[in-house]
Simulated assay, not measured.
Amino acid sequence: MASLRKITVAKDGSGQHRTIQEAVDSIPRESAGRVVIEVKAGEYREKLVIDRPDVSLIGEGADRTTVVWGDYARKAFPSGEPYYTFHSYTALIGGDGFVCEGVSFVNDAGPGELVGQAIAAYVDGDRVRFRNCRFVGWQDTLFTGPLPPNPLDRSTFGGPREGQPLRPSRQYYEECCITGDIDFVFGSATAVFERCELRSRGGEQPPKEAGGAAYGWVTAASTPQGAEHGYVFLRCRLTADAQVPAGSVHLGRPWRDYAKTAFVLCELGTHIARAGWQDWNGRGEAGGVAYEEFGNEGAGAAAAAAGERTSWSRRLTEAEAERLSADDVLAGSDGWRPSAEGGEVR
């Protein structure tokens, strides 16, 4: 195996750089081979952009190495123009072949209608892997790009990828923890989440847009038409803060037509609504969505076993569920196998 170039980041000055962004910027854009950025423990308060290919970001543990920022959708630029959702990120990860382990990405803008959406990580590189990481926010914590073709409520999305060609993205999350309250995993990627925790947060009051019928939503997929897979959650745990009422959180709602989301062999807490899924502007009933479950356990799964989920969702057969391994879902035309790449960066 070819030798790896390594860079150390440390807040105390004991590494080559004091900030992660300085380390990223030191990598030539046409760099050959993988570059490993080892980040020592500490809170790195910076708005991070990783746009080089084949970068590994290795922290000292998600409880010790944290990237944090606090932008939000309703914040305004000096011109008065709002940030909107897609400028609010703490970390923008656009390089293909990105690997991350032992890092937390936090947006600390806080909950509430004065803040709006506040992304912790905007991820739209291809063949991206996260292991033992945390993503912490409220509304729209983790965006798995690319963007949908067109915005729904204005002429532009107003984010860093505005006007760029949309391309497929495959993403793999292993033993990560993602927290939020509204659509806190959302976007158009084909993404597999394996043995992850998805934690619904308890705020001061239920989201107003829920109309009192729900406390929040875990996912909001915008899977492109024709894509074989959208989100696949394998052996994950869906948990909630104590303030989150029982039966008040839906597994997902379709951000666009053709949204696809599957929960397989997951543990669903009491906070999961009996209907499981919630419609969004008629897309559930008539938008060609695929919302699926198989073999889930826990109080939140009882309604699925009893056939009480919403009529436009379905239970997978055992044979269908067996075809949803990470390697099968993410293979693409190049045969990518994230399970075979577990240890090359250490």
Rank of each mutant, 00 (worst) to 15 (best):
Glu267Gly: 11
Val264Glu: 04
Asp71Asn: 15
Asp279Thr: 05
Glu267Gln: 14
Thr190Leu: 07
Arg34Gln: 06
Pro207Thr: 14
Thr239Asn: 07
Leu152Met: 14
Asp183Ile: 07
Gln225Met: 11
Phe135Met: 12
Glu322Trp: 01
Glu318Arg: 13
Ala73Gln: 14
Val36Met: 06
Pro206Ala: 15
Tyr173Gln: 03
Pro111Gln: 13
Arg74Asp: 08
Thr317Lys: 06
Gly269Val: 05
Lys47Glu: 11
Val49Asp: 07
Arg74Val: 09
Leu92Asn: 05
Glu46Phe: 00
Thr156Arg: 10
Thr85Cys: 13
Gly102Ser: 07
Arg170Ile: 03
Arg161Val: 05
Ala321Phe: 06
Ile50Thr: 09
Glu175Pro: 09
Tyr215Trp: 15
Pro82Glu: 06
Glu194Arg: 05
Lys260Ile: 13
Arg195Pro: 04
Ala76Val: 08
Pro151Ser: 00
Ser333Trp: 06
Ser56Lys: 03
Gly94Cys: 12
Ile50Phe: 06
Arg34Phe: 05
Trp336Tyr: 09
Asp327Gly: 10
Ile27His: 02
Ala220Ser: 15
Ile178Met: 06
Gly284Cys: 00
Val345Met: 02
Ala91Pro: 07
Asp124Phe: 11
Ala262Val: 05
Arg34Ile: 03
Lys260Ala: 15
Val39Asn: 01
Glu197Leu: 03
Asp108Pro: 06
Gln171Tyr: 02
Glu293Ala: 12
Gly159Met: 07
Gly332Trp: 08
Ile272Pro: 01
Val103Gly: 12
Arg131Glu: 10
Gly163Cys: 02
Arg195Ser: 13
Ala23Phe: 04
Glu81Asn: 09
Tyr291Lys: 10
Leu265Arg: 13
Ile58Tyr: 10
Tyr231Asp: 11
Trp217Val: 11
Leu198Val: 14
Val128Lys: 09
Ile272Asn: 08
Ala41Cys: 00
Arg253Tyr: 13
Ala62Leu: 06
Tyr84Cys: 02
Leu268Cys: 10
Gly298Ser: 11
Pro151Gln: 02
Ser325Met: 03
Gln243Lys: 13
Glu344Met: 08
Leu238Asn: 02
Ala91Ser: 14
Gly307Ser: 04
Val192Phe: 02
Arg52Gly: 09
Arg283Ala: 05
Glu101Tyr: 08
Ala227Cys: 07
Ala302Pro: 03
Gly125Arg: 04
Trp138Ile: 11
Gly125Ala: 05
Ala227Glu: 05
Ile58Trp: 07
Ile93Tyr: 03
Ala121Arg: 03
Val128Ile: 08
Ile20Asn: 08
Val67Met: 05
Arg256Val: 01
Asp257Val: 05
Glu344Lys: 01
Leu152Lys: 15
Arg314Asn: 00
Val103Cys: 11
Ser3Cys: 07
Gly102Trp: 05
Val106Ser: 08
Val39Gln: 01
Ser104Met: 01
Tyr231Ser: 10
Gly125Ser: 00
Phe184Leu: 06
Tyr89Leu: 03
